[in-house]
Computed example of a mutant assay.
Amino acid sequence: MTTMVETPVALRRGRDLVSPELFEKVSEFCAEEYGHELSTARNIVDQALAFLKVMGDARAFDMTPSQVVDPGWHSFALHTRAYAAWCQEQFGYFLDHEPKATVRTRPLIGSVVERVKAAGFYVDERLWGAAKDCNPPACCGDGDGC
């Protein structure tokens, strides 16, 4: 009888989708612009990149980031040349950001988290309002159910 030992699969990280230099540049901007500690900004940008990859690959324009993760997308998009080049490389088109296009609700954010996880990315549930110990305003954002 043979016993199979399952080896844990390493989860993907959003930060690995860009160069280390670009990741730091965007993270530093996020920290300065939004008043975060650099370590927190790095986590936010990491989650934003994973979210963008999933949304862009699937052309899932019904997705929205949490209120906490959204500044990571803003910070990247404001580096317009790098963001446009990355979008073209990853998706073959520019992934527009339209603020408040979708109202954040707990069910919507929950589905986004599940899609990001299903794509094999690490999800920091505290930044998505999906952690069991979540408290407003870090919860789902501007919708119902926090």
Results as ranks from 00 to 15, higher is better:
residue 140 C to T: 14
residue 37 E to W: 13
residue 136 P to H: 07
residue 79 H to F: 13
residue 107 P to A: 06
residue 1 M to W: 07
residue 57 D to K: 05
residue 80 T to N: 01
residue 42 R to Y: 05
residue 19 S to I: 09
residue 9 V to P: 02
residue 134 C to T: 14
residue 33 E to T: 13
residue 75 S to M: 07
residue 30 C to N: 14
residue 86 W to N: 02
residue 18 V to Y: 05
residue 136 P to K: 08
residue 40 T to D: 15
residue 84 A to M: 12
residue 1 M to Y: 14
residue 119 A to Y: 07
residue 73 W to Y: 12
residue 38 L to S: 01
residue 94 F to D: 02
residue 146 C to W: 05
residue 96 D to Y: 03
residue 132 K to Y: 13
residue 17 L to F: 09
residue 7 T to Q: 10
residue 70 D to S: 12
residue 94 F to W: 03
residue 15 R to N: 11
residue 116 V to D: 02
residue 93 Y to G: 06
residue 58 A to Y: 00
residue 18 V to L: 12
residue 103 V to I: 09
residue 113 V to M: 02
residue 3 T to C: 10
residue 125 E to A: 13
residue 68 V to P: 01
residue 122 Y to L: 12
residue 38 L to N: 10
residue 119 A to E: 10
residue 131 A to N: 14
residue 58 A to L: 05
residue 106 R to P: 00
residue 138 A to V: 08
residue 25 K to V: 13
residue 125 E to N: 07
residue 99 P to R: 04
residue 123 V to M: 02
residue 51 F to W: 03
residue 125 E to H: 10
residue 56 G to Q: 02
residue 7 T to H: 12
residue 29 F to V: 00
residue 100 K to Y: 09
residue 35 G to W: 13
residue 78 L to V: 14
residue 100 K to N: 10
residue 6 E to T: 15
residue 126 R to D: 12
residue 93 Y to M: 02
residue 142 D to R: 09
